[in-house]
């Protein structure tokens, strides 16, 4: 997946992590721990990210509003906003709410707060129970939306958050090995692991994660470029595993980076034409491009 255009030098990324009310000590601890882990993953990246992590009593609705309003003031078009919500959600058939200390926050209220943020690329990862019910209120053009459940009727506590956190620190989640974990890669990883969890436990799955990035769909479980889901999610970076970006900023290597980007683009185009080519022809062309790409990368690594 090509992410060359995904992270421009001037773009800032704003992260907001909310760990809602656990209700029981076990959940309180679990939610807070996941939020802390996300916080440390994001901070360890060492780039100029703006991180707000709200957990325990700090996750009150007023604090969420304050944090979002601050970002609305600071962010610019072209920036990226990533909101990750951990905890319990509820759905009464009409309205979805995130359970927070004090008054809860409805999906509609969250949607209003998000709409005020000028960052044109947004990712909302709602990992609460019943989170599927928040899709209608949060769906918007240029916003990638991920939920742990497919509807409001999946009300059991979810495991998706656990695997989402794992995805952001596991190199295996980086399927295209470009040292950046995109929203799509993290979603696929967490969805796969959550499914595997229920399969291995021989339990009926009580959560079915969805991804929606078209601004008009109901969300899909296995996004693919054929149905246009995944295009935005694939181009939206969540974390980077190495200093790939630093290389792109090195003027001495800019020419090589440009060549590398072009080769990657040619490989993508060739892959799209695969079905129309004879297998041997495809293999020959692919090998030639891959060898050239590998040689370019070797030069870059010197």
């Amino acid at each position: 997946m090509l992410l060359a255009g995904g992270m421009t030098c001037s773009a800032a990324t704003f992260y907001v992590t909310i760990a809602g009310l656990g209700g029981e000590p076990d959940y309180e601890q679990r939610f807070a721990q996941w939020a802390s882990e996300l916080d440390s993953i994001l901070k360890s990246e060492g780039r100029d990210a703006k991180i707000s992590t709200l957990k325990g009593p700090d996750a009150a609705r007023a604090n969420v509003r304050t944090a979002m309003e601050k970002i609305a003031r600071e962010a610019r078009p072209g920036d990226v906003l990533v909101v990750m919500i951990i905890g319990h959600g509820s759905y009464d058939g009409v309205e979805y709410k995130i359970n927070l200390p004090g008054p809860d926050l409805s999906a509609a209220e969250l949607g209003t707060l998000l709409n005020r943020v000028p960052a044109t690329r947004q990712l909302v990862v709602n990992m609460t129970s019943a989170s599927g019910a928040s899709i209608d209120a949060l769906r918007k053009d240029n916003r990638v939306l991920i939920t742990a459940t497919k509807s409001g009727s999946e009300k059991n506590a979810t495991v998706f958050a656990r695997y989402w956190v794992e995805a952001l620190r596991d190199a295996a989640a980086d399927a295209d090995k470009n040292e950046t974990i995109s929203a799509l890669e993290a979603f696929r990883y967490a969805e796969h692991k959550a499914t595997e969890y229920y399969d291995s436990q021989k339990r009926l799955a009580t959560e079915h994660p969805l991804l929606e990035d078209t601004g008009k769909g109901a969300g899909v479980r296995t996004p693919s470029s054929q149905d246009s889901e995944s295009l935005r999610a694939g181009a939206l970076p969540v974390v980077r595993l190495a200093a790939a970006k630093a290389m792109a900023n090195d003027p001495r290597k800019r020419e090589l980076v440009t060549k590398k980007d072009q080769l990657e683009q040619q490989i993508d185009e060739l892959k799209y034409r695969k079905a129309a080519l004879a297998p041997e022809d495809y293999k020959k062309q692919l090998t030639a491009l891959l060898v050239e790409l590998a040689q370019t990368q070797e030069e870059l690594d010197k």
Binding site: K177, E264, I267, L290
Partner: peptide, 12 residues
């Protein structure tokens, strides 16, 4: 590499 063209160990 078809799956991940930028996969360094595979490139090497």
């Amino acid at each position: 590499l078809e799956e991940a063209p930028g996969f360094r160990p595979a490139q090497k």
